[in-house]
Design a protein around this nucleic acid. Structure first.
Lengths: 264, 264
DNA sequence: TCATGTGAACAGATTCACAGCG
DNA sequence: CGCTGTGAATCTGTTCACATGA
């Protein structure tokens, strides 16, 4: 099952912390908006507010890039836009392939923010022959047989996987074999890739589950009781099985033993 | 422009670290797969491999939930599925509204992993009257006028925003005013929400930019030179502007001054 | 004997608070 | 004087390594 290959070694880039890199696009977006409104300079306080972070963090982030501000004044918007774009590698053209043109793949193909900022959809690829040739967002879908050829000819290094989970690892392997070294994975699977290949994961279901966790906690706080979170509709989706060979003895879950409410 | 409201206070849940919460869905998925294959028990090592994390981390994560394993043996799969589901609040039903039924909204509505795991699409909402009544993924789209009514009647506490960026904040405000306390935001904007409301952001463009950063770094390492990253097609999307009132003097960007290659 | 559970060491990220400079 | 830039303190998360107990 292809284990033993690491999952994002996160090789501490050129001194720029990963957390900072993840915020640069946020700053860039805020700066671009300012730029469009012809705002010449901005303070760390203002920009931080626009980007939804605190100003100390923003200043520290920028300090990793160099000293691009002017004390007593702030940052020059245009200059900063350029510096961040360059740092992120957006001053060059990045051809991208999207594999799996279902609902999601089609939505991604049509996504505006995609085309902007130096990313260019080099090809849409789907395994279904019925899709081949059909234009999606103005781009004709190509059959997956063409995958390797496209990647090599266009020098594609970024691939987007929007296939069903079942085939994501195969697709990933083919992408990597053909030369792709960065993958954005929308399929709900853990992908194994060799060292040197970056994978980022976008998973709707995980995000919702995290929200549900916090939501549940909020509900539990209103009344300080434990269960009884929803208004009334309680539908336990999973039965609480006894642990193997359990004698029903000690078990130190943080809020008591197996919950009182059990399905009939 | 609606500042002053915080953006995810991350109120350190019930002792369970945020990073751990974010991994629980991953473990749950791996465990569910094992469960379907009727695997009775699993070791931290095996499960960690399946979830793409290291085993020490997994054990520490589980230790926050309680002692659910058996020394010398491992974890009981079914029992752990139940405990994690409960911890995440997935043993109850979470009605969700999706606002903005464009390409992306439609894709989300049809997303399988949505319906599973206790999440139920309570309504699809769009501002375009032409969409009203049209079934998407089997659910008829409702007009945004109905938004408040739906949220209150169905007790919806989770909202998904898939609108254009321009209206996302307004939609967010309406959702919050109507009682939604968790928001999954697909629009490329920073949302301001009052305390007590959680926002999670999913942003394709940001993910791609992060990948591009690392990709660029890789390219820069192969040859130890600086620019010249792509094969040949270099298209600087942004001109490097001089800083305000600059005399072209000292500027300590980490790899030298303004880049040598300037657009004509 | 084996794999869990966890203190302790470490690493990374955030925040504080203020020196330094325009 | 105001705002940047940054050392130092703090907080959060990860990894190590081993005592513990089935």
């Amino acid at each position: 099952m292809a284990t033993g290959r690491t999952h994002r070694p996160a090789t501490r880039s050129r001194g720029i912390p990963e957390a900072t890199v993840a915020r640069l696009p946020l700053y860039l977006r805020a700066l671009t908006a300012l730029s469009e409104r012809s705002v010449p300079t901005v303070s760390s306080e203002e920009l931080a507010a626009a980007a939804g972070v605190n100003s100390a963090k923003l200043r520290k982030d920028f300090s990793y890039l160099g000293s691009y501000g002017t004390r007593g004044v702030g940052y020059d918007v245009e200059y900063l836009v350029y510096q961040i774009s360059r740092e992120l590698g957006l001053t060059q053209d990045w051809p991208v392939v999207i594999v799996g043109i279902g609902n999601l793949g089609a939505a991604l193909a049509g996504y505006g923010g995609f085309a902007s900022r130096g990313f260019r959809v080099a090809a849409l690829i789907d395994a279904d022959p019925a899709m081949t040739g059909k234009p999606v967002a103005g781009i004709p879908v190509q059959h997956s047989d063409e995958l390797e050829k496209i990647i090599e000819e266009d020098g594609v290094s970024i691939g987007v996987i929007a296939t069903p989970a079942g085939v994501a690892q195969q697709v990933c392997d083919r992408l990597v074999a053909a030369g792709v070294t960065s993958i954005l994975n929308f399929a709900p699977t853990v992908l194994s890739v060799p060292d040197g290949v970056d994978v980022r994961k976008v998973d709707l279901s995980i995000e919702l589950q995290i929200l549900a966790f916090h939501e549940q906690r909020k509900a539990g706080e209103e009344s300080n009781a434990e269960a009884d979170a929803g208004a009334e509709a309680e539908t336990p989706a999973v039965a609480p099985p006894a642990p193997r060979g359990s004698t029903g003895a000690t078990r130190k879950g943080p809020d008591g033993d197996v919950p009182a409410v059990m399905p009939a």
